[in-house]
């Protein structure tokens, strides 16, 4: 039963999503829409599992003083800050005691982390401190009317702090990380682009033409631009089609193996 029912579910839902493609009836589409919604709803629980895993890994690093354990505090602080910002919103012009509330909640989490490792009297001390900060945060939350907590109205996403953290922290880090690849890709290019044989030379020439087409000050820039456009629209298109057709057939074969229960690796052991 532990394995048979999941296999049956895979077959039923896999077969249904294939079948509904051939039945463009509104009732079939109605069920299909709900199935897609279920996938999204389950997704948030899967993400919660991932966050739980992040919490456990970070706690383990802190408690066992593994290398770079101090950064785990930073990770957890970032995580909980975003969660607090995502479920709270300002009601008027002032934030009131919002930031003391945020600090109190973070202190509760820090004290809880300390509680896991501590023993004897220090454990009682940390529990007491955690309770104290919890009471403070509850009192602030109850009496301060300049902001409020939201779980069932989408005010949370309107919190400017949430958006500011995204704009001034997440986006700069993300884009700088990707831009760093420009340097690493340059050293990789040196190794890959040495024209040792015909294939490497073709790779080198194609890459150079595509890169140089953006340089408008180069002599013959027009020629590079036209050659690059032709390369992208003809040979590149042809080879990409071969790859895409291969991927398409591969996905069909793998999906059939999964639906028919031939491929069962996703089920794990036990």
């Amino acid at each position: 039963m532990k394995r048979q029912i999941p296999f049956a579910l895979v077959f039923i839902f896999g077969f249904f999503t294939i079948f509904q493609y051939f039945v463009p009836h509104e009732s079939s589409e109605w069920v299909y829409e709900f199935l897609l919604d279920w996938i999204l709803i389950i997704g948030i629980f899967a993400l919660a599992l991932g966050i739980w895993s992040l919490w456990r890994v970070s706690i383990d690093k802190i408690n066992n003083r593994r290398p770079n354990w101090g950064y785990s505090y930073v990770t957890l602080a970032g995580l909980f800050l975003m969660i607090i910002f995502g479920f709270t919103a300002k009601n008027g012009d002032s934030w009131g005691y919002y930031f003391p509330f945020v600090i109190a909640v973070l202190l509760v989490i820090i004290m809880l982390i300390q509680t896991i490792k501590a023993k004897g009297q220090s454990k009682i001390l940390y529990i007491g401190l955690a309770l104290l900060f919890l009471i403070i945060s509850i009192l602030i939350g109850y009496f301060d009317k300049s902001w409020s907590i939201h779980f069932s109205t989408s005010e949370g996403l309107k919190n400017t702090m949430f958006q500011d953290f995204f704009d001034y922290i997440l986006i700069p880090i993300l884009s700088t990380m990707f831009s760093l690849l420009a340097f690493f890709i340059a050293s990789a290019a040196y190794r890959a682009f040495r024209a040792r044989n015909v294939l490497a030379t073709i790779l080198l020439v194609a890459a150079l033409i595509v890169m140089l087409r953006f340089n408008f000050y180069l002599p013959g820039a027009e020629y590079f631009a036209r050659t690059s456009t032709w390369l992208m629209n003809v040979p590149n298109l042809a080879a990409n089609r071969a790859i895409v057709i291969g991927i398409g057939l591969g996905v069909v074969a793998t999906a059939l193996k999964v639906i028919l229960g031939i491929e069962r690796g996703y089920m794990g052991k036990g």
Binding site: V74, G78, G86
Partner: peptide, 16 residues
Amino acid sequence: AIFVGISAGYWFIVYY
């Protein structure tokens, strides 16, 4: 570390 924590929290909230 900031990136890992904030992006996990960000996506959790957006998904929620």
